[in-house]
Structure formats: C-alpha cells, structure tokens
C-alpha cells in the first residue's frame, strides 16, 4: 500500500448546471467516476429524508375503499418537506420517547369530508387534508398557495387551473370520510413514499467521432440513411449549406444517443466499418433529476450531497478509530 508520496489521486469533480427548475434539474458531473455518480443517485433515491403520512387513525369511513387502502393512498401523497432535514426521526426523538407524536418529529393532519346533498360524486383530494403545520402540506396546496401569492409559477403555464389535488377517494351522497393522520420523517429506503425522487438517472456522455475521410466516400442517400439509422436524432446533415453533395453528417445532439449501436451496425452493414466511432466518456455524466415535489430539485441534490458526506464522515470516523478489525489487517494497516 505504499503510494509514491506526493502524487495525489484526488480529483476535484466539477458540476455544471444546465437546467434548474423547481422539480427538474439537469446537470453535468465531470472529473469523477461511476462510483461517485452512482452513489449520488442512490442517495437521492433512497436516503434523502422527506415527510410522509405514516399513521392514520380513521374515525369514520363509509367510502367504497377500505381503511388500509385509504391509508396507503394517503401515505403516497408527497408533502412539502423542505424542513425534513432539520426534523427528527421519530425513532430517536427524545421529546416523545419515539412515540412519534410530538411537534419535533411529526405533523398532524386532519381530513373530514362528508358528501351531503349533491347528487354528484364528491372527490376527496389532497386539498382536503388540513395540516397542523403550515410548513408541511400536500404539494398541490403549496403550489396553489404560491400561485395565490402571485408569485411566478415555476411549474409551467397552466398548473394553476389544473390544480385539483391528488385524488384520494370518491364519495357518493351520504358517504363520509373522517380521519387523523400523522406525518413523519423517513427515507426512501424504508418505504418508497419517503423517496423525494421521481426520476434520478444519469448517462455517460458519449464521445462521437465521425471519420471524415470515409464519410466523403458516401453518397447523399447513404448519408441520409446513416442519419436515419439512429432511432434518436443524434446526427444531421450539415445544414449550413443546402443539402447537396458536400453536406456532411455532423453530430446534432450527442446526448440523444442511447448507446444502441444502431449507427455502428449500419456503418458495418454498408461496408464502412469505422465510419462512426462512439465511446462513453468514463468521467463525465449527465444527470437528470425529477422530484415528486416534496422538495425542490436543488434541495434534493444538495441534501443528497449532505447525506453522502455524513455517511463518508461516519466511515472516516471509524477509520480514525482504527477499529477495522481483521479488515485492517488485510488492508495492511498499522
């Protein structure tokens, strides 16, 4: 394990944000490797805490769905969880002995809907949930509130008039639903309802090289067919000039490439192997992050980094103790 002292393998990853909306982010992560990128992805899915309904006490339920069914649906409603990082887990909350019902670790919700006179079915949605803590509420309510404030609508043009909430159950005349629910902090590893991530994915940035010499041997038809051989729009004809004999195939959008090898196969099929070469850049990743709305995409990324750091700190602290046991011996430690 003797490393030549002086040479450091430490790299300094760079992040470039391409697009950042409230519930969507796209960024590049460079100068690092897959383990790092994947660790970030995994943490975002499974370990960034949010708040979600965890306990439901049903007082009256005469709807068509049974109690567990409704409880399950309630649990999956994303709640605004900007404060979740600061909240306590109920299991290690001192204020309530892990009871999970104090203000430090829980938020109480009430729902009481009674379909009275109307002959139409009444839709019970997340908008009917009344939160005891204004910071934690169903995401649609938060959106409507922001909209009412006259703030810019970050969720696209017609989010406001489409804001009908998340459907919980439909009631016919005479049916009633009344319940008390307690939301708690948790992580996606325990249950998917606590996962703030709708989509977290990354791809290796492709490195596409077109062999210009070979390309010149192609007819225009062959070039067009080469472009069309890719199911996604990766290539195009050099559109600066009109399509003519000399227009070349250029990369239009490298990231649209799905590593499907279709172009390479096509090149081989027309007898020009090596016409296009595509490799993945081993140290460069394009992340796409979408959230459920519980926290913003920015918070998700930042919280994920925080959580990841905490975990690394935990490992490092262990290392400092030298308490690796047999593992330490294997690593050739002291």
């Amino acid at each position: 394990m003797d490393r030549p002292s002086g040479t450091s393998y430490q790299r300094f990853p760079r992040v470039r944000i391409r697009e950042l909306k409230d519930d969507y982010a796209k960024f590049e992560l460079r100068d690092t490797d897959a383990s790092m990128a994947n660790a970030l992805r995994r943490v975002m899915i499974a370990e960034v805490p949010t708040v979600a309904i965890d306990l439901v006490e049903i007082e009256v339920n005469s709807s068509v769905l049974n109690d567990e069914f409704i409880a399950h649906r309630l649990g999956l409603i994303p709640l605004t969880s900007a404060a979740a990082m600061q909240m306590r887990f109920s299991r290690d909350c001192d204020a309530c002995d892990g009871d999970g019902s104090c203000e430090y670790c829980s938020v109480e919700f009430h729902l009481s809907v009674h379909a009275t006179d109307s002959d139409q079915t009444l839709e019970v949605t997340s908008n009917d949930l009344r939160s005891m803590d204004p910071k934690v509420c169903p995401v649609d309510q938060a959106r409507a509130y922001q909209h009412a404030l006259g703030g810019t609508d970050p969720f696209g043009a017609n989010a406001s008039n489409e804001n009908r909430g998340i459907l919980i159950v439909k009631l016919r005349r005479g049916q009633e639903l009344r319940l008390r629910a307690i939301a708690r902090k948790g992580i996606g590893k325990d249950h998917a309802k606590w996962s703030p991530a709708a989509t977290v994915t990354f791809m290796y940035e492709p490195d596409i090289r077109i062999n210009e010499e070979l390309m010149e041997t192609l007819t225009v038809e062959e070039r067009i067919s080469l472009i069309e051989s890719s199911p996604t729009k990766v290539f195009e004809l050099d559109s600066a000039n009109q399509v003519n004999l000399f227009s070349l195939v250029v990369v239009k959008n490298a990231e649209a490439y799905t590593y499907d090898d279709e172009v390479i196969k096509h090149a081989e099929a027309i007898g020009k192997p090596g016409l296009v070469e595509i490799t993945a850049k081993e140290d460069s990743f394009v992340f796409t992050v979408e959230t459920t709305g519980a926290i913003t995409a920015y918070e998700l990324i930042m919280n994920a980094i925080t959580v990841l750091r905490q975990k690394l700190d935990a490992v490092r602290l262990q290392d400092d103790d030298g308490d690796l046991g047999e593992l330490g011996a294997h690593l050739g430690g002291p």
Binding site: N38, A39, R41, M203, Y204, P231, T258, Y259
Partner: peptide, 27 residues
C-alpha cells in the same frame, strides 16, 4: 412505433447497473 418514440426496434434498452452505476454488458 418503437423507433418513432426513440426506442430500439427490438425492444431492448441500454441499462445501467443500479449497484455499480456502470452500463450492463448487454442490451
């Protein structure tokens, strides 16, 4: 239809391993 929506015609996808983050060796 698949090609029109950016999928491979044969229904195969390029996947990454969730454990390692590396691409899987097959479609």
């Amino acid at each position: 239809t698949l090609i029109k929506h950016g999928f491979s015609y044969n229904g195969k996808d390029f996947l990454y391993s969730g454990i390692l983050g590396q691409p899987l060796e097959a479609y």
